[in-house]
């Protein structure tokens, strides 16, 4: 007897509920493109925002919506990008690998601080207090905001308080560009190896007192470069990438080593005429 009751009760209940669910499923169904989930699963989930979207899911939505190409994701490996492109049947839109580059070489051993800054130890905070006290107004303050902001462990401060970018780890997300109060970082194609590592807009040898590796706007690099590759603007050389093939010629006669060749393994190579920097210790703070 109880077997029949039980089966009847449960059968009835489940039938009723199944009918309700079937109806609800039809009336209340909300469509969502299943491809979004798939694509999101293929993305690296770094949520770094380098693609210009607030996170990986919105980027996936944009990809599925055809608003952007998968190559815009700088964190994915090339296979990953290919896989997404293949899945969605679109072109890759791949770009040359880009990295962040620092336009300053003024570490504590070559650049001088005029005043002693006291307060919160971040570049952003220090730069708001009389520029941070560094002799060169344009130079790196060395508190390492970029190191802290980098999600990929690609920036480390060296012994002279200058950030060094690990080209392999850098994904060109642009966080360091945003955080640097002196705007010293920029995103560059990795093969732009001829590089001006200075932003000082002053000219003349007086500025060497503040920083031994500053650009004095002597213009030799512009003269030595072939064609219109380098022009002098606002007392600084400007390299017009893509105009000519890059060579090491322009760096050779630079007296301070403000223009360098960035070698993947050796780091920054200075020209043969540049004054060697021997000093290792920190320069004294203050002015006469």
């Amino acid at each position: 007897m109880s077997v029949i009751i039980a089966i009847a009760v449960l059968g009835g209940l489940t039938l009723l509920l199944a009918v309700m669910l079937v109806i609800a499923n039809k009336k209340l169904y909300v469509y969502e493109d299943p491809r979004i989930d798939v694509v999101e699963g293929m993305l690296p989930h770094a949520n770094c925002g380098a693609c210009g979207y607030p996170g990986c899911r919105p980027f996936a939505e944009a990809l599925v919506g055809g608003k952007i190409l998968p190559g815009k994701c700088t964190v994915s490996s090339s296979e990953g990008v290919e896989a997404i492109a293949e899945y969605l049947g679109v072109a890759m839109g791949a770009e040359e690998k880009q990295v962040a580059r620092l336009a300053c070489a003024g570490g504590t051993n070559v650049a001088r601080n005029k005043a002693k800054y006291k307060g919160m130890e971040t570049c952003q905070a220090a730069s708001l207090v009389s520029g941070g006290g560094k002799g060169c107004f344009w130079g790196c303050l060395g508190f390492g905001d970029c190191e802290a902001v980098c999600d990929f462990d690609a920036i480390h401060m060296d012994e002279h308080g200058l950030p060094v970018v690990d080209e392999d780890k850098c994904t060109a997300c642009g966080d360091c560009v945003e955080v640097c109060p002196k705007d010293l970082f920029s995103i560059q194609p990795i093969n732009n190896r001829l590089w001006v590592a200075c932003k000082n807009l002053e000219a003349g040898d007086e500025i060497l007192e503040d920083c031994q590796v500053a650009c004095t706007a002597c213009g030799r690099c512009a003269m030595d470069a072939s064609g219109d590759l380098i022009t002098m603007e606002n007392n600084l050389p400007v390299i017009h990438y893509g105009v000519e093939e890059l060579t090491k010629d322009p760096i050779q006669r630079c007296p301070t080593g403000a223009i360098v060749w960035l070698d993947q393994k050796l780091g920054a190579i200075k020209g043969r005429d540049s004054n060697p920097v021997i000093r290792k210790s920190e320069r004294e703070i203050g002015f006469s």
């Binding site: 109880s2 009751i5 039980a6 009760v9 449960l10 209940l13 489940t14 509920l17």
Partner: peptide, 15 residues
């Protein structure tokens, strides 16, 4: 009413 109190748990959870 139908004397099937042993189905209490399963009916509750399903509903």
């Amino acid at each position: 009413a139908v004397d099937a109190e042993f189905l209490q748990l399963i009916s509750y959870i399903v509903v």
